[in-house]
Computed example of a mutant assay.
Amino acid sequence: MFKKISWKWYVGAIIFTVSLALIFPLVGLKSYVNEVAIISESLMIVFSYKLMIKRLSGPVTFFLGLLVGLFWGVALFSLVGVIYNIN
């Protein structure tokens, strides 16, 4: 299913979700930042899996994708928290 989707759509969706995560606190929707960041993190996991599956085995790619998603989520939550001082 994920193989049929172009990588451009993943990049566009990731950019869109990061933009939403940065805009939501400005318009008073701080409570929705977590959901948007989780969606962005999930997109990053699938995108990194799609990029690495051609060169690495399935289980290695899966765990590397999870690590990339974890670091992406931490970075996004940290960025939004620092910019908007969200506790």
Rank of each mutant, 00 (worst) to 15 (best):
M1A: 05
M1G: 00
M1H: 03
M1F: 10
K3P: 02
K3C: 05
K4I: 05
K4E: 09
S6W: 02
W7R: 10
W7Y: 08
W7A: 10
W7L: 14
K8T: 12
W9K: 12
W9P: 00
W9I: 15
Y10E: 00
Y10T: 05
Y10I: 01
Y10K: 00
Y10L: 00
V11F: 09
G12H: 04
G12D: 05
G12S: 06
I14H: 01
I15T: 11
I15V: 15
F16H: 10
F16W: 14
F16R: 10
V18Y: 10
V18Q: 06
S19F: 11
S19R: 03
L20I: 08
L20Q: 13
A21M: 00
L22M: 12
I23N: 05
F24H: 06
L26G: 11
L26K: 10
L26S: 11
V27A: 04
G28Y: 12
G28K: 13
G28E: 09
G28M: 13
L29I: 13
K30R: 14
K30I: 04
K30L: 09
K30Q: 12
S31G: 09
Y32L: 10
Y32E: 08
V33N: 01
V33H: 03
N34R: 09
N34F: 15
E35A: 11
V36D: 03
V36W: 02
A37P: 04
I38A: 15
I38W: 09
I38K: 07
S40Q: 10
S40F: 07
S40L: 10
E41Q: 13
E41Y: 07
S42D: 08
S42M: 14
L43I: 07
M44E: 01
V46L: 07
F47Q: 03
Y49L: 09
Y49E: 04
Y49K: 06
Y49S: 04
K50Q: 14
L51I: 14
M52L: 14
I53L: 09
I53Y: 09
K54Y: 14
K54M: 09
R55F: 12
L56R: 02
S57D: 12
G58C: 11
G58K: 15
P59L: 13
P59V: 08
P59N: 08
V60W: 11
V60D: 09
T61L: 12
T61V: 12
T61C: 12
F62P: 01
F62K: 07
F62R: 11
F63I: 13
F63D: 05
L64T: 01
L64D: 00
G65V: 03
G65L: 07
L66Y: 05
L66A: 11
L67E: 08
V68H: 02
F71G: 07
F71N: 03
F71T: 01
W72V: 02
W72A: 03
G73Y: 06
A75H: 00
A75L: 07
A75K: 01
L76E: 07
L76P: 00
L76V: 10
F77E: 01
F77R: 09
S78I: 07
S78L: 08
L79D: 01
V80P: 03
V80S: 03
G81Y: 14
G81R: 15
V82L: 15
I83D: 05
Y84R: 11
N85K: 13
I86A: 15
N87D: 06
N87S: 10
N87H: 13
N87G: 13
